[in-house]
Design a protein around this nucleic acid. Structure first.
Lengths: 194, 194, 194, 194
DNA sequence: CATGAATGAGAGTTCATTCAT
DNA sequence: CATGAATGAACTCTCATTCAT
């Protein structure tokens, strides 16, 4: 039991080291030895938990993505009305991106880079299903614009990534007021105009 | 004259090879030898035109960014009314991102990755000034929401990057109708609601 | 213990390969790969024991210099009378230079070339202190000429380097008689003339 | 005529650049391109005057060695008595080593390093003949010890190289008094003791 | 004669991965 | 399970040399 916990701790330490180092230096500029050192294990130990470097980063991506979506939908409930549901999800996503910025930066880098297997990318996307279901419901009810999910995502969710990166570079600090503006912009770009 | 032209051709071949290979494999997974081979020169020749690998990618970034903004503002004229001006610029940006998708992908990777010098990034940003000026004018006239430029960019311009990447991955094909929807979403997210 | 011994053996093999190859070809004409091959290790292994090529040659210099001075003073004892002490040291130095000629050649090359860090050079000089102390005593007693240590070294010790190099080039073979002549010349050039 | 002079100037500039750069950095750490730049010519031009890098350094060695010996024997005359003759030569050598220290440093590095062809080394030694003749005469007259020329050189001439190097490293400044001491040591080590 | 541009060969060094312990 | 030592392969970059002009 204690042994199992130690294993889990090591795996987590490796995942976290990967996130931090890849954020700072990029995937290929991050040696396995550095990851090992930051996680306080031997380089060889990494290979007990992951097949190779690509597998390590793939698994890290999937794990972070899973955390992200779990957080996003934690307070959402499929019985909510569409607008309410969207607001709940959007706020959680914003919170995650701006508070768990290391995780969010890592995802942004993975999503704009050929560093992740296509298979792992697909795996990561699956978790977004509740949001797509919400949008489907919204379209049927005539509350959400009848456009493709990619378009909805591009205008209501993805801007948060840009704002998160900008904030992390120090160019701007996003307070509550900004977030409200952002939500307004997000919602107004996907709701049907009466 | 012919010698100068040959020099320019070689430099261009190197820049283009860099864009293509970095797009496919990422910065650190692209060896100088591969870039040289694709540009049909010796690896040593690269160092006649660029100081080192970092310099090559920095210069490539600046060059592509300059092309991008030149394209964006080519048909814009500061005397245009704000809404007209924004539409003109937005359409050109969309055209660039979706047609010159190799260049656009390269920029997206640079902007979401620690692969570019901070100095080069700043250098690249400068060229966007006409758009910021347009927004300033729009805010003064009460046509554009009085929010920060980052916010305006996040909701009106940046979504195009997401759509471009999505299209390049083959998930979606953006036709004229999609573009019109996208423009509507972009404009409605930054214009003041009457 | 066995593992430690293997480490020491490898380090020694590297040091010895460095001495031999630098003697034959010079510092910059000796590639790391050749050193590795002669020491029967992979090139990468060198970097487990030394930071880089400069560090390798610096450490080799210091180690050889330490061996040299240890040999020089092994039979010397500070209570010996000055003339006796000098003779003892001189003979040991001569023995070292002519028998351990690889080591001596290496030191000569280091001392006449910009291939060693100034810091390492200083480190190497420190070990000669007992000889300087002996000379100080000799000057106080009026046995040794009251001239600078550099002068004493130039005329009593340094000629051995020239003779060693000459012998290694095959121009001459130094037997016991030559050595006695050399000692006479050395001593007569630093002792006070009665 | 003017064209010939320009050729000679270029050759000299190359020789001088070689001396200075090899003194500072060593033979192999001195690129041809750097030599060319210091001599204000194109790298390709070097190959009009010298076959290759090895040839350049060989020729430089021979030229410097010739200058050195020309200087050494300039005021010497074979009719001088042995002691007078030796003094005259010794003083000129000392003057050269301490004043033309760049040239002298270069020779020292060549003589203690495998950077010169054996053939060029032999070529350089030939010029010392007048000194060897003087010593032969001295031995016949019973003024000079009946030992090998190498021994005589080691104790009377070579120490000047050590003193020169030491002075160039800044450890010591040799004034007239030091030189007189040095000459005393040199002469007393090779003259026959009455 | 002189050159700047070009390069093939090879330098030092790093790193993902393995394996005896 | 965990490791540190070891390494082959591959990287970036340099340089002596050449050649069209």
């Amino acid at each position: 039991m204690a042994a199992l916990q130690k294993s889990i701790d090591k795996r987590n330490a490796l995942i976290n080291a990967t996130i931090e180092l890849v954020n700072n230096d990029g995937f290929h500029a991050t040696p396995m030895s550095k990851i090992a050192k930051m996680a306080c294990v031997s380089p060889a130990t990494i290979y007990l938990y992951f097949e190779n470097k690509q597998d390590l980063v793939n698994k890290t991506y999937i794990e972070v993505k899973a955390n992200y979506t779990a957080y996003a939908f934690a307070t959402y409930d499929e019985t909510m009305p569409v607008e309410k549901g969207f607001k709940v999800i959007w706020k959680r996503i914003a919170e995650f991106k701006l508070k768990e910025s290391a995780d969010a930066m890592f995802l942004a880098q993975c999503d704009n880079t050929p560093m992740i297997d296509e298979a792992s990318r697909q795996e990561g996307i699956k978790h977004l299903q509740p949001l797509l279901d919400l949008w489907a419901r919204g379209k049927k009810e005539g509350v959400i614009k009848p456009v493709s999910d990619y378009m909805l995502y591009a205008y209501s969710i993805n801007p948060l990534s840009f704002l998160m990166i900008t904030q992390n570079r120090g160019s701007v600090k996003l307070d509550k007021e900004h977030l409200d503006q952002a939500y307004e912009a997000a919602w107004s770009s996907i709701k049907t105009c009466k």
